[in-house]
Write a protein that binds this DNA or RNA. Sequence first.
DNA 1: ATCCTTATTGCGACAAGGTCGCAGCAAGGA
DNA 2: TCCTTGCTGCGACCTTGTCGCAATAAGGAT
Lengths: 156, 156
Amino acid sequence: MKHLEKAAEQLAGHLAGGGLRLTRPRRAVLEAVMALDRHFEPAEIEKRAAAAGVHRASVYRILPVLEAAGIVRRVRDHPGRWHYEHVVGHQHHDHLVCERCGGVTEFASPAIESEQARQCRLHGFTETSHHFVIRGVCRQCRAGAAGRKEKTRGRR
Amino acid sequence: MKHLEKAAEQLAGHLAGGGLRLTRPRRAVLEAVMALDRHFEPAEIEKRAAAAGVHRASVYRILPVLEAAGIVRRVRDHPGRWHYEHVVGHQHHDHLVCERCGGVTEFASPAIESEQARQCRLHGFTETSHHFVIRGVCRQCRAGAAGRKEKTRGRR
DNA sequence: ATCCTTATTGCGACAAGGTCGCAGCAAGGA
DNA sequence: TCCTTGCTGCGACCTTGTCGCAATAAGGAT
């Protein structure tokens, strides 16, 4: 993944332009993030970063930095719930979230984009961002009829 | 809300058919749930139930009962994250949320609905619900540079 | 290469969401 | 009313996320 280098550069640029510093923890979190798939939760990064000796609290302080640097984006799942997704190398898209396995599929639809622009015009609304999530059951889960086992939740 | 009675009946029926009991706490949680809007989080119910003398732990044990009774549905937002929604299907509408005044405008768009159905077909996805929110600035706020109200962030 | 300023980190504490085992309580059929 | 046993309240504990503070270390200046 050459995305990492690109992101690192982007981070460095962002930091430089604000008197901010490129530290080891920041680099570690960046790497953990880039090593993951497009979507992830802070907890996942927290785990990986911890292995690199980065403290939990730092991870939560660094993620917003990456966001400000335009490397990841914080996406709202539902009021109060968030997850992150990569921005570098990805264009805008919306999400299909499976209620069974939790899998996230992305899709892009110019038709929706334009219709949404039309709606905004219609209501004299100036859009700054939008969030579109379709919940349901993905192909795999529906196929595996009996429903696959839930991934272990919370407990341990 | 006559929905409540209907739900209560449904609950009673479900319980009766399984040697389960209709207790005061269960009734209280049912009422708290029905008093809320379509989507809600356990925390919300927890608060209301507490006011009725129902313990936190009980709420988390009762919600799954309501789910089994077909009164609410537990929906997965993302791995490890859940929220509930009323199963009494209500017509869905989408929203335009103003970032300045917080106003919410509803809109319905057949074009989006159909495009979204097409996307689902395309990905072998079976939709159960969707959530579409466009954030931005409404006509009024853009006209008069009205006072904005900062969203409280972070702290709790 | 060394010094200095100060952005950033690690730490420990804390708040809220959520789960568990257990003993006592109470729904509701006998 | 009695009795079985499904439920509940309680309190301990785990997880996610945030905060204040003192120590640390980037990285420009020297």
